[in-house]
C-alpha cells in the first residue's frame, strides 16, 4: 500500500522540489501551502507522514504539529519538521510537541528521502 505524504510549506519552489522527491520515492503526495490549509487537508487526506515547514505566516508549523497531535484520529501520523532557522530551541520545541524527526533547510535530497523512509518504517 502506497504511503501518503502531506507537504506543508509556503515556499512554492520548495514545495515543487519536495513533491518531485516524494513522488519519485513512490509516495502519494498532497500539498498544503499554509498552516490553515494543512489542518483541513490533514483530516481528509489522513497522511502517514507530514513534512511540515516551521516558519509560515499565521498558523505556523508548531501550531499545526500540536493540532495534529491533539487529534486522536491522527495518532499514527508521523511528522517531520522542516526548519530553516536551525536553532536547537526550535528543534527541541518541535520534538517536544510530538514531531518524529526534523530536517534542516537546506537539506540533502537523499538524506531527506532516507529520513522519510526511516520514519515511516518506525512503528
Amino acid at each position: 500500500m502506497t504511503k501518503k505524504v502531506l507537504i506543508v510549506d509556503d515556499e512554492a519552489n520548495i514545495v515543487i522540489s519536495l513533491e518531485f522527491l516524494m513522488q519519485q520515492a513512490g509516495y502519494q503526495v498532497e500539498i498544503a501551502r499554509n498552516g490553515e490549509d494543512a489542518l483541513t487537508v490533514v483530516n481528509e487526506f489522513k497522511p502517514d507522514l507530514v513534512l511540515l515547514d516551521v516558519m509560515m505566516p499565521k498558523v505556523n508549523g508548531f501550531d499545526v504539529c500540536q493540532k495534529i497531535r491533539d487529534n486522536a484520529e491522527l495518532e499514527d501520523t508521523k511528522i517531520i519538521m522542516l526548519t530553516a532557522k536551525g536553532r536547537d530551541v526550535e528543534v527541541a520545541k518541535g520534538m517536544a510537541l510530538g514531531a518524529n524527526s526534523y530536517v534542516i533547510k537546506p537539506f540533502s535530497t537523499k538524506q531527506l528521502v532516507l529520513e522519510v523512509q526511516r520514519v515511516l518504517e518506525e512503528s
Binding site: 520548495i14 522527491l21 530553516a84 533547510k105 537546506p106 537539506f107
Partner: peptide, 14 residues
Amino acid sequence: LRTPLTSIRAFSEI
C-alpha cells in the same frame, strides 16, 4: 537566506 538556498540545493541535486 536558507529558503532560496534550500530550493537551489534541492533542484541542483535533483
